[in-house]
Design a protein around this nucleic acid. Structure first.
Length: 551
RNA sequence: GCGCCCGUAGCUCAGCUGGAUAGAGCAACGGUCUUCUAAACCGUGGGUCGCGCGUUCGAAUCGCGCCGGGCGCACCA
């Protein structure tokens, strides 16, 4: 059992004993919560137990704290005192710190991986951009955070699957095909009207050019309808491959690529049919409507148009139903903030199908604004359209781009400083962290040359400098940090943690030498920095940022 | 008008399951390289936590009402 749990039990036991002896009145014990105090002079752990119990015991917090402190018994406890409005601060015997570090070291590279949790599987669906254009920086934010969240949940022990929903059916794919067709004709010098709802991106022209490069003008002879049909498949395949390539370059991969088309082979019909059976569908103006107003929506929504075609919403209902049918217990979707008006109707559909809407969590990502030289960058110089993820990667690199997206929570708007992301100095947080990792790698190389051995049985109790103790405490808090960040779906906590750990290492480095000090101390310090390096590498791994050996 | 997100240091943001003197990075100022990477470290200054009311022993954190910014309110996706 961990020391924290032992301490919590001891506190509860002390309170019980105080009640039995009549020092405290009979009452239900509040939950024991332990925290690490803001300052190290305040001990190793603190609890607000006495303050929480003030109401139940009808006594003032300091009095209650007194009864606890005088009765608490725990072998590892050195002493406890009362502070401020009624906090109890606990000071543990020195070697507790080192026992925990030794355990962390013994866990090796597995440190930071939590035990498997026995819970229903989680699905994280993110990016899911339409295959009709290029990924832009907003998609990049979703991709970075989504993949970091998947990594985070996985190391925290959750069974998790990542998925990309490919919108390969419906209008926008028809528009894609028509746009490619128009560019194809254009490139071959044939007159044509560009479709009104067409995609005007330069990438569409590229796709058309690829077709000509490969097959020449052989499609000209075809009936237009047939040509567009062929182009649809060619374009879709090419655009999808581009998406996959861009994402892979950005360290983003998916367990599953889910095609919307597969839903139109019966699952959409089934879902609508089930809704109808449940009495929430009616017909009006030739269309089928879902009475989402029963579930708090502003207005009812069409699921099947008057032309018989299901709406995007209908497919989405079927998609979410399918996720639950595949056995996922928790669904997480990452959506652009501009889709938030959509959440009510999706949850309504889950409710109407008999699923618990609370099992679907939708995380919204707010806008990204790029800044260069203090000026807002709106458009790409190359394409005249939104800046693409590919351009961002070329500009600042994958590591910096990912880290900058990951250091902010999704739900606040992000100002991305391109100059800062490119800077190779401490101003740039991603270099700061990577540098800590590389510096440790360098120390290890130097230590080896100096005949200093990397040992596991070292005298950790020699690590008494303030900077050493701070670093040790940070390392020990890592699993807890993973647990908390995973629970809150908050990868940005790990970004922050990595930065703080790097900072503590840099301070240590300036103050404490390894090579050239007494052998036992040198060995202990070497073991410590190796552990720090492992934690930094692990955290960077969660973030999908590389951990260089040299910089 | 209705709904969602945001408002914390000069700038960009953490902190939000209520807890001790509200933190970090950048920017500003002043120091630190004969020794493991100065892509680093140490120090200083800087705040009505948008405003108001409420709940509480205790509110940046919870509730309500304003104000300001962003986004959305399709038989588009």
């Amino acid at each position: 059992m961990e020391i924290k749990d032992k301490l919590a039990e001891a506190i509860a036991a002390a309170a019980t004993s105080a009640i039995e002896s009549g020092a405290l009145p009979e009452a239900a014990l509040p939950k024991v919560e332990l925290s690490v105090p803001p300052k190290k002079e305040m001990g190793d752990f603190a609890t607000n137990f006495a303050m929480q119990g003030a109401r139940a015991f009808h006594k003032n917090p300091r009095q209650i704290a007194n009864e606890i402190v005088s009765r608490i018994e725990l072998a590892e406890l050195d002493h406890a005192d009362i502070a401020g409005p009624g906090f109890i601060n606990f000071y543990l015997k020195g070697d507790v710190l080192y026992d925990a570090l030794a355990a962390a070291m013994a866990a090796g590279d597995e440190y930071g991986n939590l035990p498997k949790k026995d819970v229903p599987p989680i699905m994280v669906e993110y990016v899911s951009a339409n295959p009709t254009g290029l990924l832009h920086v907003g998609h990049g934010r979703g991709a970075a955070m989504g993949s970091a969240l998947v990594n985070l949940l996985r190391v925290a022990g959750y069974p998790v699957t990542s998925e990309y929903y490919i919108n390969d059916a419906g209008n926008q794919i028809d528009h894609l095909a028509e746009s490619v067709n128009a560019r194809y004709l254009e490139l071959l010098g044939k007159p044509c009207d560009f479709p009104e709802d067409g995609y005007k991106g330069a990438d569409i022209i590229e796709t058309a050019r690829h077709i000509i490069d490969r097959d020449g003008d052989k499609y000209l002879a075809m009936d237009e309808k047939e040509r567009v049909k062929i182009f649809k498949e060619i374009a879709l395949k090419e655009k999808l491959q581009n998406l996959k390539d861009d994402l892979a370059a950005f360290h983003v991969t998916f367990d599953n690529w889910f095609s919307e088309r597969t839903l139109h082979q019966g699952k959409v019909k089934e879902a609508v049919e089930e809704l109808r059976k449940n009495g929430v569908i009616y017909e009006k103006d030739g269309a089928l409507w879902f009475r989402t107003t029963d579930y708090g929506d502003d207005k009812d929504r069409v699921v099947v148009r008057d032309n018989g075609e299901p709406t995007y919403f209908a497919a989405d209902i079927a998609y979410h139903r399918d996720k639950f049918e595949r056995g996922f217990g928790t669904l997480i979707n990452i959506w652009g903030a501009d889709h938030h008006g959509y959440v009510c109707r999706v949850k309504a559909s889950l409710k109407a199908l008999g699923y618990n809407p609370d099992n679907l969590t939708i995380l919204f990502l707010q806008m990204v604004s790029l800044y260069r030289g203090g000026e807002l960058v709106k458009m790409s110089k190359r394409t005249g359209e939104a800046v693409t993820l590919e351009e961002l990667m070329d500009d600042v690199g994958v590591d910096a781009a990912r880290y900058f997206f990951e250091m902010r929570s999704l739900d606040s708007q992000l100002d991305f400083d391109l100059d800062l992301a490119k800077k190779e100095s401490s101003e740039n947080p991603v270099y700061y962290i990577q540098y800590a990792h590389a510096r440790i790698a360098s120390i290890r190389r130097q230590a080896k040359e100096n005949g200093l051995e990397e040992k596991s049985d070292v005298k950790l109790t020699l690590l008494t400098d303030e900077s050493e103790v701070e670093l040790i405490k940070k390392i020990e808090s890592y699993p807890e940090e993973i647990e908390r960040a995973a629970k809150d779906y908050a990868p940005q906590r790990i970004a922050r943690f990595a930065h703080e750990t790097a900072g503590l290492f840099h301070s240590f480095y300036t103050k404490c030498r390894i090579i050239g000090v007494d052998k036992e101390l040198a060995e202990a310090r070497l073991a410590l920095v190796i552990k720090a390096q492992q934690v930094i590498r692990h955290a960077l791994g969660v973030l999908g940022v590389s951990a260089p050996e040299k910089m």
